[in-house]
Design a binder for these strands. Structure first.
Length: 898
RNA sequence: GGGCGGUUAGCUCAGUUGGUUAGAGCGUCUGUCUUACACACAGAAUGUCACAAGUUCGAGUCUUGUACCGCCCACCA
């Protein structure tokens, strides 16, 4: 126990406790057959990344779940790790090299990788330290990086297995090509952008009919040089007679066939489509159908090559477009240019339009698609919120083979070797191609494939590759059989295809077990919202609207940040974030701090080491309705929190904790206790009730605000020196019930009414500018029962209302009054009442009550309501009607007095 | 073109089986250093719950349609 300082300073508390937790092995996950297993794998951040608000949201939720799991007696593990982020890192390192006047190719593969590793090791790992600042209770010694030896073995093993089963194949296909990073990308990595562009209408002369021209529309005139046909719809009457003839491609000038293909939309453009098989996926398909030549006019960096012709060679796509338009115009072939809006696919990392490109790549035909669908449809894996299931199923229904090879060096090199000197490689011939994790035994005779794997083709194995798969010894060491499948996955919906869906397929494919229930990688997936700024824009570096979480932590504390963010994060809803939201969290922590401080100042802290030892100090004969009410509220809060956890309603939990602590405990109970604390006979009981409440509150709040709760837990003497809040059971109601503390509806109702009485008394004072006066006199007219309650609580009421006296009196005249559940309260203002104003106020009140009566009465006089509504609702309505009628009568009486 | 969200107080948002007179935080206004907390306390003001129709005894909540905003998917050049 230590004395609590006046203001809460998070920095003094947070680092201290984090160190203690780590040194005491609090975050270590150990298999324990007597406990239920609970596990989470972190969505691995980019190893060279820095913490963003998105990470804060995501990892706070994971930390809350894992800490709650520890509290509820599960054996919990949160496995941390980082991702090597292939293309992103390669791009950054290449940039550094360029600034040094060199480039990757000059360095060569080995040296480049060494440089990239250096770069990773100097710039990497920052985010791990930042996660610690946030309070993330990961089992750090288990940190995994996707390029670790063990993990790499998993990636290569998966490749080899899938290859041997025929799921992975090499093929020449149209892929998404990034001309900046010079690599193929998967469909998922292409970001569509809505752009304003131009639609060019031009004409090609028909070779067989010199006076006839065919009008064609295109958005990409720079590909004209690659045209190998013009297509029209076979049933298009306008062009039927031209099918089979030729038209003249203007440059390089050549006659190309006019073909018929159903793909062409007669309604769109002119109904004639130029076909560039090398540079458009749809054209490629048409080209295949009609056996058209493929004329690739671009270099890998999307500049024009020799096939485009002398004038174009070396030009960029953009320059080539300008030149092509100029030439068309000069040749008199350009008809018009229209403005046009359409989607253009961009490379996320390269930030340029992707170029469809025909190339040799490795593809994966996904395994276990149907099983992956079923796992979610049958509820083996639950999505929160559920609506993402549809997105997931839709993607699986339309799934296409995954291009997994990347023409970069930073990543897992494809474990395929080709025999040196073999010209036409036959993939079915083991003399030609070797595929294994370890490589051929005579490496000098082989050459390894140059490509690396897509980063996601490594991270899709995350849930089990982090637990030692495929190495049996490591799997046992890392307790895969105990911790797999993981319990909850927390991630953003933006990577549902990239990662979540693929992990599910990977788990089903590679994990053993009797049923899919044992193979799936996780049981629940919680999809967070996206953090945006107050204008609803995504946070981004270029907009500069992305606050640095570390600065916020420095200013408000990690607990404040966590509480603030969780408070406004409704399930799966995007969050408009601003610092003000963190203020709420910080204020909550500060108030918590001061409540404990107040408790320490109020009296010596006794044996607080358990609920039992605290309750022993309670003299049950001294408990009054306020004690019972606040304890009831605590119990209700604990029960509700449990339910909220079950349905992943984290914002609801913060709201309940806030309302209980701030409104019920501080605003009412502590204030009401003050007068009873002055009385030695009730003081110990009151303090013990406070201790029960604080103990319960800290237990419930711990996962959200781990640092301050741990600090206060110890300064309040709730835990022994080397114990931790994470090991304390949070089911408050279960602990209290055997000690004779239960929910008390009558006490809650009475407290509510007393609060109302005080509130109205204060309002009356404020109305008459007497808020500061402590010597106001009130009269209350009430029935005998209520009068007795008021008398019994008179001391407390006087203190709270700032009154010298509260007298029970049957008839009062000429005083402003307010009607309460317990009776009518009057402020003694003999002779100085502004009767006009008072009358107006009462009239307003009367109108309110009348409208309530009207609606209730209407319902009650409705036969259908009486016959169909449940009895409890009818009784409630009747009771309410009576109460309101009594109030109305009372208020009319008051009005008549003026 | 298909799908999914959102529309509730000045702002940001809760409101999970339909049930009394719709809530919170911030902001605004009026007071207050009242034996913790001004990161606080007390009081006040503020809503045709986007619009329309329907189901129902009863709709912010369910159904259908409309409008606007946002996101995702889709090879119309």
């Amino acid at each position: 126990m230590s004395e609590i300082s006046k203001a809460y300073t998070p920095s003094e508390v947070e680092d201290k406790w984090y160190e203690k937790w780590v040194n005491s092995g609090c975050f270590k996950g150990e298999p324990d057959s007597s406990k239920e297993a609970y596990s989470i794998v972190i969505p691995p951040p980019n190893v060279t990344g820095v913490l963003t608000m998105g990470h804060v949201l995501n990892n706070t939720i994971q930390d809350i779940l894992i800490r709650r799991a520890r509290q509820t007696g599960k054996s919990a593990i949160w496995i941390p790790g980082t991702d090597h982020a292939g293309v992103a890192t390669q791009t950054k390192v290449e940039k550094v090299l360029r600034s040094e006047g060199t480039c990757a190719r000059e360095l060569g593969r080995e040296k480049f990788i060494a440089r990239a590793k250096d770069w990773r090791d100097t710039h990497g790992g920052i985010i791990i330290e930042q996660l610690k600042k946030l309070g993330a209770s990961c089992d750090w010694p288990r940190l995994v990086h996707t390029l670790d030896d063990g993990y790499s073995e998993a990636v290569l093993t998966a490749f080899v297995k899938l290859y041997k089963q025929g799921y992975i194949y090499r093929g020449k296909r149209m892929v998404n090509w990034c001309p900046v990073n010079l690599t193929a990308l998967s469909d998922e990595e292409v970001i569509p952008r809505h752009e304003k562009g131009k639609f060019y209408k031009m004409k090609y002369r028909v070779a067989e009919e010199p006076d006839t021209y065919l009008e064609i529309c295109t958005t990409r005139p720079e590909t004209i040089m690659g045209d190998s046909a013009v297509a029209v719809n076979p049933s298009d009457e306008r062009y039927k007679h031209l099918i089979g003839k030729h038209c003249v491609r203007p440059f390089p000038e050549a006659e190309i066939p006019i073909i018929a293909d159903r793909y062409v939309d007669m309604e769109f453009g002119t109904g004639a489509l130029k076909i560039t098989p090398a540079h458009d996926p749809a054209d490629f398909e048409i080209g295949q159908r009609h056996k058209l030549p493929i004329i690739d006019i671009m270099n890998p960096d999307a500049t024009m090559n020799a096939l485009a012709g002398k004038e174009f060679e070396g030009l960029t796509r953009e320059a080539a477009r300008k030149l092509a338009v100029k030439k068309l115009d000069e040749m008199g072939l350009l008809i018009e240019i229209q403005d046009y809006e359409h989607n253009v696919g961009y490379s996320e990392r390269g930030d340029v339009p992707i170029e469809p490109r025909l190339s040799d790549q490795w593809f994966l035909k996904y395994p276990k698609i149907q099983e992956a669908k079923a796992a979610v449809e049958n509820g083996l894996i639950k999505f929160w919120p559920k609506r993402w299931e549809k997105t997931y199923i839709h993607w699986l229904d339309n799934i296409r083979d995954w291009c997994i090879s990347r023409q970069i060096w930073w990543g897992h090199r494809i474990p395929v070797w080709y025999k040196k000197g073999v010209k036409n490689i036959d993939f079915n011939n083991p003399e030609h191609v070797h595929v294994s994790v370890k490589g051929p035994s005579d490496p000098e005779n082989w050459e390894q494939d140059e490509d690396s794997l897509d980063t996601w083709a490594s991270s899709w194995l995350w849930p089990f590759a982090t637990m030692g798969w495929p190495n049996a010894e490591k799997m046992s060491e890392k307790a895969l059989s105990y911790f797999y499948p993981t319990s909850d996955l927390v991630t953003g919906p933006d990577i549902i295809f990239f990662w979540v869906a693929r992990m599910i397929m990977a788990g089903l494919e590679f994990m053993g077990g009797k049923s899919d229930a044992e193979k799936i990688p996780f049981k629940n997936v919680y999809f967070t919202g996206i953090i945006r700024d107050m204008q609803g824009r995504k946070m981004s570096k270029s907009l500069g609207n992305s606050p640095d979480p570390l600065e916020i932590i420095a200013k408000y504390g990690a607990d404040g940040l966590r509480f603030g963010v969780m408070n406004c994060a409704a399930q799966g809803q995007d969050i408009l974030f601003s610092e003000e939201r963190v203020e709420l969290g910080r204020n909550f922590c500060n108030k918590l701090w001061n409540a404990c401080r107040f408790r320490q100042m109020s009296g010596k802290i006794g044996d607080n080491s358990s609920f039992e030892s605290i309750v022993k100090r309670i003299d049950f004969s001294k408990l009054d309705s306020d004690d019972a009410a606040v304890l009831s509220s605590l119990i209700q809060t604990s029960k509700a929190v449990q339910k909220d956890y079950e349905s992943y309603q984290f914002n609801s939990i913060t709201q309940r904790l806030y309302a209980f602590f701030w409104t019920d405990f501080c605003d009412w109970y502590l204030e009401v206790s003050k007068s009873r604390m002055a009385d030695e006979s009730s003081k110990q009981t009151v303090l013990a009730v406070q201790d029960v409440c604080m103990r319960g509150l800290l237990l419930l709040a711990h996962p959200f605000i781990p640092f301050i709760s741990e600090e206060l837990w110890h300064s309040m003497g709730f835990g022994a020196e080397n114990s931790f809040l994470q090991n304390e059971n949070p089911f408050v109601e279960k602990a209290l019930e055997p000690l004779g503390i239960k929910e008390d509806a009558a006490a809650l109702a009475l407290t509510k009414n007393l609060r109302e009485l005080v509130s109205k008394a204060r309002a009356l004072k404020a109305q008459y500018k007497l808020a500061n006066k402590k010597d106001a006199v009130f009269y209350v007219s009430a029935d005998a029962e209520n009068a007795a309650q008021i008398t019994a609580n008179a001391e407390k009421l006087k203190r709270l209302a700032g009154a010298a006296e509260i007298k029970i009196k049957a008839e009062v005249k000429d005083c402003p009054a307010a009607i309460c559940e317990l009776g009518t309260i009057y402020l003694d203002l003999t002779g100085s009442v502004d009767s006009q104003a008072e009358k107006q106020r009462l009239e307003k009140e009367k109108a309110k009550i009348e409208s309530a009566i009207k609606s209730t009465a209407a319902r009650l006089s409705n036969e259908a309501f009486i016959s169909k509504a449940p009895q409890s609702v009818i009784d409630g309505a009747k009771k309410q009607l009576e109460e309101n009628k009594a109030k109305l009568e009372e208020i009319e009486k008051l009005i008549a007095l003026f």
